[in-house]
């Protein structure tokens, strides 16, 4: 990562810690009856005694628990991701880690809510829900995304290594990469055609010699 200041990113829990915790996630997190907004609200109280105000709770409800009848595929997958983030934050090995405490900088609820929203943006729709806990590569991706949005480095990794490994497992990055490479490939072919066209071959008058 070129634009971050390495000195400002503390070392957090190991990747293995987070991966194991994901593998042990309770199956009921995948049930449509789970009240995800309540998981978030309870966790806020647990983290630093924050009681979310009525407006915040209404927004969470509207976003994550509009009722079983309104459950779309997108919403279901976001609910699972939020449930898994809450499960990870609740882990004492995570939330009491000194690096995490430094990253949260005394605003643990704010810190947790940031992860909740960023994980949804980054990962929603990329994989089938249960893959996040069952598949090695998916656990890797969610664990690295979680630590990244938690603003800590996986234990034992420096910023550049963490960045490289994140890009290697990031489905969105790899998808964008393939897309960008396809654009560049098409562009290279277009350039070749443009240079070979008669109107390019005729060139233009030259005023100096090189």
């Amino acid at each position: 990562m070129v634009d971050a200041d390495p000195a400002r990113v503390p070392s957090g829990p190991s990747l293995a810690t987070v991966r194991h915790r994901l593998a042990a996630a309770p199956p009921d997190l995948f049930e449509p009856t789970v009240v995800t907004a309540a998981l978030v609200a309870d966790l806020a109280v647990e983290l630093d005694g924050t009681v979310l105000d009525a407006a915040s709770l209404d927004r969470l409800d509207a976003d994550l628990d509009p009722g079983v009848g309104a459950l779309t595929v997108d919403l279901a997958t976001r609910r699972v991701l939020v449930g898994l983030v809450c499960w990870l934050v609740r882990d004492p090995a995570v939330r009491t880690h000194p690096g995490v405490q430094a990253a949260a900088a005394g605003q643990r609820t704010r810190w947790m809510l940031d992860i909740v929203s960023q994980v949804q943006v980054e990962l929603a729709g990329l994989r089938p829900d249960r893959d996040w806990v069952q598949l090695d590569e998916a656990r890797d991706e969610l664990a690295r995304a979680f630590l990244r949005f938690a603003r800590v480095l996986p234990a034992g990794e420096d910023l550049a290594t963490a960045q490289d490994r994140w890009l290697a497992v990031s489905t969105a990055y790899q998808r964008d990469l393939v897309r960008e490479m396809a654009v560049e490939q098409a562009r290279a072919e277009e350039l070749e055609r443009a240079l070979a066209a008669q109107k390019a071959k005729e060139a233009a008058a030259q005023y100096a010699n090189y």
């Binding site: 654009v183 560049e184 562009r187 066209a197 390019a200 071959k201």
Partner: peptide
């Protein structure tokens, strides 16, 4: 690989060899 050095956001309709 000259294409790797040509910006992707410039229209190529006026390219001269």
């Amino acid at each position: 690989d000259v294409a790797s050095y040509v910006p992707v956001d410039v229209p190529l309709d006026r390219v001269l060899e």
